[in-house]
């Protein structure tokens, strides 16, 4: 009896069990194609990061303590999402909703910090049109931010479904996929802060 994120099926109905398994595998395939999308953007950044067109480079515009703050928001939200899922498996609606709201607020904190960073850069004339380096930077970090934003909308919808429908097999099945998506975004962020910010500064 191993409780796993990828293979856990809280429902007893056999048909729904298979449906959840297929849907989760299908969603996993989507995540793997998304990995390839991010890999292309990472490759673009690695090719362009020294092409600053006499504009600012990484050391001038990257603020590592700020990025550390963003990282903490996302990492802690991945953990609280796991806590929420443990209450979904126990069919404890109130606690699941509470921890999902905590997760969503932490995710929102991450997005607010990122948008603030972007506005700050564009305000100083260092927008994506400044150089190849900044185009690649905004392209990669912005794509990740767009994913997190979509994840937040999805999370809001699932909190609504939990409140209205309760922990039904279908709702749990959707929550499993949301959880996969959220963890995937945290994994992409680990690669992102290493490649973008560390290589940009060091």
């Amino acid at each position: 009896m191993s409780s796993t994120t990828l293979t856990d099926h809280p429902e007893s109905d056999h048909h729904l069990h298979d449906a959840t398994e297929n849907a989760t595998f299908g969603f996993w395939l989507y995540l793997m194609t998304d990995c390839i999308l991010f890999a292309s953007l990472f490759a673009t950044y690695a090719v362009l990061y020294q092409n600053t067109a006499s504009g600012p480079g990484g050391p001038e515009i990257f603020d590592l303590p700020y990025v550390f703050g963003e990282t903490m928001f996302l990492l802690v939200s991945a953990f609280t999402n796991g806590v929420a899922m443990s209450f979904v498996y126990k069919k404890d609606r109130q606690k699941a909703v509470f921890w999902l709201i905590v997760t969503a607020l932490l995710g929102l904190g991450f997005i607010v910090m990122e948008v603030n960073e972007f506005i700050h850069l564009i305000g100083e004339g260092n927008g994506p049109d400044r150089s190849g380096f900044l185009s690649a930077f905004f392209g990669l970090v912005g794509t990740h931010g767009a994913h997190v934003s979509i994840g937040l909308i999805w999370m809001a919808v699932m909190i609504g479904q939990l409140l209205i429908k309760g922990v039904t097999p279908k709702v749990s099945s959707r929550l499993i996929r949301l959880s996969l998506f959220w963890h995937f975004l945290d994994i992409v962020w680990v690669c992102l802060f290493t490649v973008v910010y560390f290589f940009g500064v060091a």
Partner: peptide
């Protein structure tokens, strides 16, 4: 009881 048996996911 789900989480009390076997491996705790948490």
């Amino acid at each position: 009881h789900a989480a009390n048996h076997g491996e705790n996911p948490l």
